[in-house]
Nucleic acid binder design. Structure first.
Lengths: 166, 166
DNA sequence: AAGTCTTGTCAACAGCTGATGACAAGCTCA
DNA sequence: TGAGCTTGTCATCAGCTGTTGACAAGACTT
């Protein structure tokens, strides 16, 4: 699982790699720089934008609501880390800058057409929100499988409408 | 501004009230209990649900996108604190339980009709996401005023459609 | 072979966190 | 008046954080 900025310590990172914490701190030049590097390493995936434009809604909706089949990076892990790191005053600067440069702006350009910025913001917001609502109620009010498929279809239509609105 | 669980220390809370931190810790029984009390104090507002059902979309969309006129509690502060506190392993339990009890479930009941749980989840997710996207790009790519009004209208229609879908 | 750079560890640092025991002043009530 | 409760402060605690200086072993270069 991907965590947040505040929640992951240097010693955690170091342990995962089997190395001393001092080395990590030194190699990256500090925790913030490490965070920035991690986020930048996720930006090249562009899994949101890549793919058929006419199936954007369905593709994204399914991935967000049903979650990734493989436990590894599904292209949204970077976004989830970003979302979880909101609320951290130390990471806020990086979060704002990165989300803008790696998420909002590319989406705006890809959308094009009328009110591209506003539509991108709306689209990004809805995607982030549904993604995060999934783990906010994890283990509590699970939505049944049948109903989930309906959710996917509804959400897909909403997203696609925003893409085609240009 | 409302902050997150990890970002606000006992000493901060105490200073704001003009009191020693020890008193706060003792009076509430600990930081987690304080957090829980704060969240519960926000639940009675029900500002999402209260009001005309046929204007739910417009009312919520305007409040979320344009922000509150008064700097004080606009009924969404509790939700924003909740959102920002995701990513904190210490607050996660409380966040999940509270958001379910004070947010998802009331919304589900209020919605009613077919697939109420799924629609509520979708609705809640979109609302949270757009709310949070506003502060993720604060100061960077501001959306112009004209475009913002279009956003409000589009978002309102999306939300209202989900309400009426039952 | 000698010098130097990289890769890495260890111990320690200052700064912060939430919490707690000891204690003081003021209030209430018998 | 004196007992007991509330309200509040202060110093202090252990635990955690990111960072850094000192040092060691290996690899590469001259």
């Amino acid at each position: 699982m991907a965590h947040s900025y505040d929640d992951v310590g240097m010693r955690d990172v170091a342990r995962d790699v089997g190395v001393d914490a001092a080395l990590v701190s030194r190699y990256f030049g500090g925790k913030e720089e490490l965070f920035l590097d991690v986020l930048d390493s996720c930006k090249n995936k562009r899994s949101l934008i890549d793919g058929d434009r006419t199936e954007f809604g369905l593709r994204v909706a399914r991935q967000i609501i049903e979650g990734p089949e493989d436990e590894d990076d599904n292209g949204f892990t970077g976004l989830l880390v970003l979302l979880r790191s909101i609320g951290s005053s130390k990471a806020m600067d990086i979060v704002q800058r990165t989300s803008d440069a790696n998420f909002f702006q590319p989406l705006t350009e890809w959308l094009g057409g009328k009110h591209a910025a506003g539509r991108a913001r709306l689209l990004a917001g809805m995607i982030m929100g549904v993604a995060i609502s999934r783990e906010m109620s994890a283990g509590y009010s699970e939505v049944a499988g049948v109903e989930r498929e309906t959710m996917v279809q509804r959400f897909a239509a909403i997203l696609q409408a925003e893409v085609d609105a240009g």
